[in-house]
């Protein structure tokens, strides 16, 4: 049970927020995170087209052998991505709370430009609270 990372990807596939928690996964450079977020954005679009039965959402959970990636796609196209251990079963609720914090601390902030990197102290502290609870 551990949470190792949080990303926010805008609707164009750009990484606008990235934070690592603990050291369950290696820390990469911000450039590498940008590339990985772009890849994930592309894969997510393709997975929706591969459905063998009718229309499908994109990938919700991607699992490796020791960690999983949980993706929450909002109706506006913003993606919240959580990197956790395989046994973590609260990923969906955590993502909902992050979405709430995003709506409160980022979208209501008059100094924030939409689709641009998030540099809001309020959001940072809300995330810290969510992750420590």
């Amino acid at each position: 049970m551990a949470i190792w990372g949080l990303w926010v990807i805008n609707k164009a596939g750009g990484l606008v927020y990235q934070r690592s928690f603990g050291d369950g996964l290696p820390h990469l450079t911000s450039n590498e995170y940008l590339v990985l977020a772009g890849t994930l954005h592309g894969i997510h679009a393709i997975t929706a087209r591969l459905s063998p039965t009718g229309t499908s959402s994109g990938a919700n959970v991607i699992s490796g052998e020791t960690f999983k990636i949980t993706i929450l796609l909002t109706p506006t196209g913003t993606k919240f991505v959580l990197l956790t251990s395989l046994a973590e079963n609260t990923a969906d609720t955590v993502l909902q709370k992050v979405y709430e914090a995003y709506a409160d601390a980022v979208m209501k902030n008059p100094f924030h430009t939409p689709e641009m990197p998030i540099r809001t102290e309020g959001f940072d502290s809300r995330i810290t609270t969510i992750m420590s609870s």
Binding site: S51, P52, T53, S56, A59, V61
Partner: peptide, 8 residues
């Protein structure tokens, strides 16, 4: 290992 969407 695997990934899940709403239908497969």
């Amino acid at each position: 290992v695997n990934y899940t969407t709403s239908t497969y």
